[in-house]
Computed example of a mutant assay.
Amino acid sequence: HAVQEIYPEAKFGVGPAIDAGFYYDIDITTTLHDEDLKKIEDKMIELSKENKSFVREELSKESAISFFKEKGDQYKLELLSEMNEDDEVISIYNEGSFTDLCRGPHLPASGKIKNIKLLNISGSYWRGDEKNKQLQRIYGISFPKKKMLDDHLYMLEEAKKRDHRKLGRQLDLFSIHEEAGAGLIYWHPKGSRVRLEIEDYWRKAHIDSGYEILYSPHMGKSWLWETSGHLDFYKEGMFSEMDVDEQDYFIKPMNCPFHILMYKSHLRSYRELPMRWAELGTVYRYEKSGVLHGLLRVRGFTQDDAHIFCTHEQVEDEIVEVIRFAREMWKAFGFEKLDFYLSTKPEKAVGEDDLWIKATDSLRNA
């Protein structure tokens, strides 16, 4: 509402609540700067003092489309075009002169919103697609008490001092060279020494836990990725194919198919099982430029990857051992409190249902 008051031409994309507050993607002709955030923030406080009610209104899809078409809001119209009123209720919220498409729920009135801070602005492509228009994303947060907001802002300032990108430069650990390729990490001698220590620990821990160490190629023919299902389910996360001797090759986003090929390289006996194989495999995944972030979101990284080949009867025991081993590895790096979540069959999946059921039951039992 505050943005609309200051910039009447603004069009609004999506604005969800997130773990660290909220954001809203906005299409306006003005390029926003930090000083503009203060103006918007002041207007938000002004509107909060008016204490106007948030009024929910449920509409038919046809009525909602008519309403936002009259407003000329193409973003809401696109969202509405994908909604099915048979499956979900279409609702808008009104607060004074401001109306927005939203599932809700909301606070009863704007006066409940206190202690607001708009944190920063970033660019964001509509629907996360770089082929779409770039919008301006405003991040913010609100707390019921001023001390809670002050404590949070203090924590953010302290976190900035410990930002791994800043420390990486200060300690001469690593660098990223956009001119040579975004999302690719260059490890300097000091950083390489740290990495070497970690890798040496990793190898010893895996060997002590009964794993054999593997090395696999960095690329493979397209048939391999077709067979594995990567081209059907993960192609958008892979780099484009390259022509090698008139055949398509892909640089690897994962190590799994290579480990399977090694396993199939000759006949195996059940007496060899379980077989625990592990690799520090360097993989390459296409990440959109807007989400790249230091060492946390990159396009090339070395993955702690393992595959265990075992009988159905051995599955649960192996899962228990994997969890024990994972706890041990995390504990070595200072992570004491861990939460484990059950992974179940996704909507897009390969394999027979009964195998998925058995696998899920084994995870649950372990």
Rank of each mutant, 00 (worst) to 15 (best):
L214R: 01
L214C: 09
I185P: 02
E241S: 15
S192Q: 12
R203N: 10
R271Y: 07
D248V: 08
M254S: 05
Y215C: 01
E179K: 13
K160L: 10
Q170I: 12
I176F: 12
A180T: 14
M262N: 10
K204W: 09
C256F: 00
R203L: 12
L273T: 02
S216H: 03
L171Q: 08
M238R: 08
H188A: 04
P189M: 03
Y154T: 11
H206V: 04
E226V: 08
K147I: 12
D208A: 11
Y263A: 09
H152S: 10
Y186R: 11
E157S: 13
Y186P: 02
P253N: 05
L196G: 10
M148C: 08
D151K: 13
F174H: 07
V194W: 03
H206R: 09
L171D: 06
F174Q: 00
Y263V: 08
I198T: 09
Y211P: 06
A180G: 14
D200A: 14
M219N: 05
S216D: 09
H266R: 13
L196S: 15
G210N: 08
G237W: 05
K204P: 07
S240W: 04
Y186D: 14
D151Q: 14
L153V: 04
D163R: 06
K235N: 07
F258R: 02
S222G: 03
R193D: 15
G168T: 03
P189A: 06
H266N: 06
E236W: 02
H188D: 03
K235P: 04
L214F: 13
A180K: 15
R271C: 01
A205N: 12
P189S: 06
H188C: 04
F258P: 01
S269L: 05
H177C: 07
